[in-house]
Design a protein around this nucleic acid. Structure first.
Lengths: 153, 153
DNA sequence: ACGTTTTCTGGAACGATTCCAAGTTGCGTC
DNA sequence: GACGCAACTTGGAATCGTTCCAGAAAACGT
């Protein structure tokens, strides 16, 4: 488990080789690219599509950009991945799904980290006046400076 | 005040013609385009840059795309406007600044509405573990369906 | 009236992502 | 073990919102 310095609280339950089963359980074929994408996101947190392409290529030798995008979409759609897109930055993907956690984004370098919300499980999930909207998700993004960027103007 | 069916809580204080003073107070020249942009956003809430371009052109006859983008940046930088960018949608601008309010975005049509957070003034503004980040803003976005889109599959 | 700032026109470029078509590979099932 | 469909490949072009460029003209505030 040395690759999992801080194991996510999310119950995605799969250990490396079991990603195949995870995919099948979700009704998806367990293909090379898909397994490699999951493995890549096991190591890289909040990786961009580009990060994933590179990681997958290092892992299994080659993969087309489209295959990776397709996979990211399929896995996100199946609920195996979560997608977040900080304003002004490319989308980022993570395996931590199902728990309601939020993100801090560094204004300077764009680094992203996870944060658990203070306010219990479902934070501001019930706004007072919803304007008639049916709400299914509350997304909280904190903006600031990461430790590195804070220590230089 | 018929244009202000629900006057924003934000104390931006300016009535139509006083936008010029508002600009000067912010250290900006009160130019035609800038005043027109403010006026446009008085009517249109959560307008895209494109919406603003069209509104400004209807208002003062003509304006270049760049002038509007420049203005939106200048005014946002001066704190007269707030910019929000829902994932997968173009940026939107609004005059309601200084209060901490949040947004609902319709997954289907992209419509945006304001919401006040249930949890008092500074909602999830103090996350438990900030990972060493210095946080200056908490942005909350609710996702769901607007009344219109909810009433058709 | 002057100097500075802003806006203009018109164009090209950007980055992330999507889409295309047609051919190949490789899963999973029978 | 073979078959059929889903997934992947290559290579290219296109999208959209936004930014950047340069030089000239206009407009603002002192």
């Amino acid at each position: 488990m040395s690759n999992h310095p801080a194991a996510p609280a999310a119950p995605h339950g799969a250990r490396h080789a079991d990603d195949e089963q995870l995919l099948r359980d979700a009704g998806l074929r367990a293909t090379g690219v898909r397994v490699a994408v999951l493995r890549a996101l096991d190591r890289l947190q909040h990786a961009t599509a580009d990060d994933v392409v590179r990681a997958v290529r290092t892992d299994i030798g080659s993969a087309s950009v489209q295959a990776v995008y397709d996979t990211l979409h399929a896995l996100t759609g199946a609920g195996l991945l979560r997608r977040m897109e900080p304003a002004g930055h490319p989308a980022r993907y993570e395996r931590r799904v199902g728990d309601n956690h939020h993100h801090v984004v560094c204004r300077a370098c764009g680094a992203v980290a996870d944060v658990d919300c203070t306010v219990g499980q479902a934070p501001c999930l019930t706004p007072s006046a919803t304007q008639g909207f049916t709400i299914d998700l509350a997304e909280v993004t904190f903006w600031g400076l990461c430790p590195d960027c804070a220590s230089r103007p």
